[in-house]
Design a protein around this nucleic acid. Structure first.
Length: 325
DNA sequence: GTTTGTTTACGCCCTT
DNA sequence: AAGGGCGTAAACAAAC
């Protein structure tokens, strides 16, 4: 394990799983979706450890992309040929990581494969999502229920803002933010890791939000994606994905209840999702689980039957996914 | 031929 | 000890 105060961290393996790294990469992108090669690049740019043995870890990473339901494959548009698809995070996978920490998942994110309530046609799916979202929003409005905790908030309808609460030091926004928020956009020197140590995983349970100010194993680079840049959701900037809803379902052949909503719908896809707010707030800006340190600890020590994934405000909540153990 | 994606298998480690 | 998460290897297929 990397130890604090050693400048060799930079070459040591980061304490993040491939799932975490991939999620970071995807979340750091303005469009919340990346091609495989871009994910590779993100990781290699930031984590020197992964500049070696690329065959090994990239194979593992691909395995994770395919194996884990939390990643969804978004096909290219027919008019934008190329190799490979785009990868995005499943809208409901936000609570995979405890307190937003990307060290180790609390539970594995799994999409239920049988859901007779879920529509099978893309058009139906859109309506289904829309309906569910409305229902849940209505329920919320009626009850005054508090908003959900985690990244599913990225799919908040109407851009309902969450108060900025406790952010786990290993949460995506913290991990990524530390880099590009360097004054003047300075990247870390390759041979001069930041002095402060990053917290060891086993320290997490006692860590406060003030910990982990340095990320010696993380380098910035010229190739960094500037996730701090305000995300333009102008429809004219929509890029590659045709977003036929069906192909979004992970694993061909599966009749998935989960219909990943394109984070940034193409004009072509908009008609299919008429009621979905086009600009979906970014995960980075909304992901912080509105957990106080106290509540997060509670969530940690006692996994209540009602998981945070069962949120009530977003279309994604209509996606019948569940964290299974 | 290379890259991308899927699947299976195995072992290690941690939590329960 | 059992179960689950994770990392790794490997085989295979499809797309480019």
């Amino acid at each position: 394990m990397p130890r604090p105060g050693r400048n060799t961290y930079s070459d040591q393996k980061p304490p993040y799983s491939y799932i975490s790294l991939t999620a970071m990469a995807i979340q750091s992108s303005p469009e919340k979706m990346l091609q495989l090669s871009e994910i590779y690049k993100f990781i290699m740019d930031r984590f020197p450890y992964y500049r070696e043995n690329t065959q090994r870890w990239q194979n593992s990473l691909r395995h994770n992309l395919s194996f884990n339901d939390c990643f969804i494959k978004i096909p290219r548009r027919p008019d934008q040929p190329g190799k490979g698809s785009f990868w995005a995070l499943h809208p409901s996978c936000g609570d995979m990581f405890e307190n937003g920490s990307f060290l180790r998942r609390r539970k594995r994110f799994k999409v239920l494969k049988s859901d007779h309530l879920a529509p099978s046609k893309p058009a139906d799916a859109a309506q289904y999502l829309q309906q569910q979202a409305k229902l849940r929003l209505s329920a919320l409005a009626a009850s005054g229920t508090h908003l959900p905790q985690m990244p599913t908030a990225a799919y908040n309808l109407g851009g309902v803002a969450q108060p900025s609460g406790f952010k786990h030091p290993f949460a995506i926004e913290n991990i990524i933010a530390r880099e590009y928020k360097m004054p003047g956009g300075l990247a870390f020197s390759a041979m001069q890791p930041v002095p402060a140590a990053y917290p060891l995983p086993n320290q997490l349970t006692t860590m406060g939000s003030s910990l982990g100010t340095g990320w010696p194993h993380v380098y910035g680079s010229a190739g960094m994606i500037d996730s701090a840049t305000p995300i333009s959701m102008a429809s004219g900037e929509y890029s590659a994905y045709g977003v036929p809803l069906k192909p979004l379902c992970h694993a061909a052949g599966q009749t998935l209840p989960a219909i990943p909503v394109p984070i940034k719908p193409t004009p072509a896809a908009v008609p299919a999702l008429p009621a979905l707010p086009a600009p979906i707030p970014t995960l980075l800006s909304n992901s912080p689980p509105s957990l106080s340190p106290t509540s997060s600890q509670t969530a940690t020590s006692q996994s209540s039957p009602a998981t945070p994934s069962e949120t009530l405000t977003s279309p994604s909540s209509a996606l019948h996914s569940v964290a299974v153990h």
